[in-house]
């Protein structure tokens, strides 16, 4: 690699009458050093919190805040404690709760979003524009305004007690997901109409055009939809906090992590909190990076070239 650039440099110098300009001027070198130094400092700032939480999760000393940065001893006990000490904070159950809720709401949300997006993108009907305007207006109300009312409604039909709380949470995350159709609709808009017209000539009905022509062409955006829907229950802690509250057997990971920093738990659980943050972050980060890739693929359109 270096050889190539050097030889290219030499040929270009030879071809260029005033070749002095093409060699790196001292000012330019200095500028590059400064730029790279700034980037390095920024990178440190951005990585510092992550580094710190990993370090804290490995700290052997108990207690919340310490007066020194580097731990006196390192240990994996904090991770072990998360999975073995389930008396006051039951991390495995929180994890399974979240997984169950995430899988269920992911299925419903994906179906709803894909259905609505397809209608908005491909089908033309009287209520289409009104629905799009309605979705925009609804998006402007602060989510919490309806959240309290949703809680009252769920309570009125008895969904806020016992195991039904899980159902209530699933409904909260998925039932109204139909308003979030913008990105997927934008993708469906790029699938050429000629394809669906050809499919209709070949005898497909409207539903088959959707499932057999448009959906297979939209794989990246379908994956993106599935992942965003799956991640929502892991990231939200506001709805859970209102609906579940203090019933710790139904806590999700986000709510559990938030509560670990409350006064009654923080002393015993601070380092394990850091460990839990690391454990939860790794799969979510991987999914997120995977999702970003699909998002970027999705943005470039359905049919390339």
């Amino acid at each position: 690699m270096a050889d190539v650039t050097v030889s290219q440099g030499i040929t270009s110098i030879k071809n260029d009458p005033n070749f002095k300009k093409n060699r790196m001027a001292p000012g330019r070198v200095a500028k590059n050093v400064v730029v790279h130094a700034i980037l390095a400092v920024l990178a440190l700032i951005w990585l510092f919190p992550i580094f710190w939480v990993v370090l804290t999760s490995l700290r052997a000393e108990k207690g919340s805040y310490t007066y020194y940065f580097w731990p006196k001893a390192l240990t994996f006990d904090n991770y072990v404690k998360l999975f073995t000490d389930t008396s006051s904070i039951n991390f495995p159950r929180m994890f399974l709760n979240t997984l169950f809720i995430a899988v269920c709401s992911c299925i419903i949300t994906t179906i709803f979003v894909l259905f609505v997006s397809y209608c908005m993108s491909r089908l033309r009907f009287r209520l289409r524009k009104p629905f799009m305007n309605l979705a925009m207006i609804l998006g402007l109300f602060p989510g919490f305004m309806s959240m309290v009312a949703v809680y009252f409604l769920l309570k009125a039909v008895g969904l806020t007690e016992g195991g039904l709380i899980r159902l209530a949470l699933i409904l909260c995350y998925s039932a109204a997901s139909g308003t979030g159709f913008y990105i997927v609709k934008g993708f469906f808009d790029t699938v050429p109409k000629s394809l669906s017209e050809a499919a209709i000539l070949d005898g497909c009905n409207g539903m088959q055009v959707f499932t057999k022509v448009v959906l297979p062409l939209s794989k990246p955006i379908v994956v993106y939809t599935i992942l965003t829907a799956f991640l929502a229950p892991w990231l939200d802690f506001v709805f859970v906090r209102v609906i579940v509250g203090a019933k710790s057997e139904y806590w999700t990971v986000a709510l559990g992590l938030y509560n670990m920093l409350e006064k009654e738990y923080i002393y015993n659980w601070y380092t394990s909190w850091a460990a839990a943050a690391v454990i939860v972050s790794i799969p979510i980060a991987l999914l997120f990076i995977f999702m970003q890739r699909n998002y970027v693929d999705g943005m470039t359109g359905a049919v390339k070239g």
């Binding site: 951005w46 990231l235 802690f237």
Partner: peptide, 12 residues
């Protein structure tokens, strides 16, 4: 490096 920081869940 910068993408890693957004991949960590926001609440964490």
């Amino acid at each position: 490096i910068f993408v890693i920081s957004i991949a960590v869940p926001q609440f964490v």
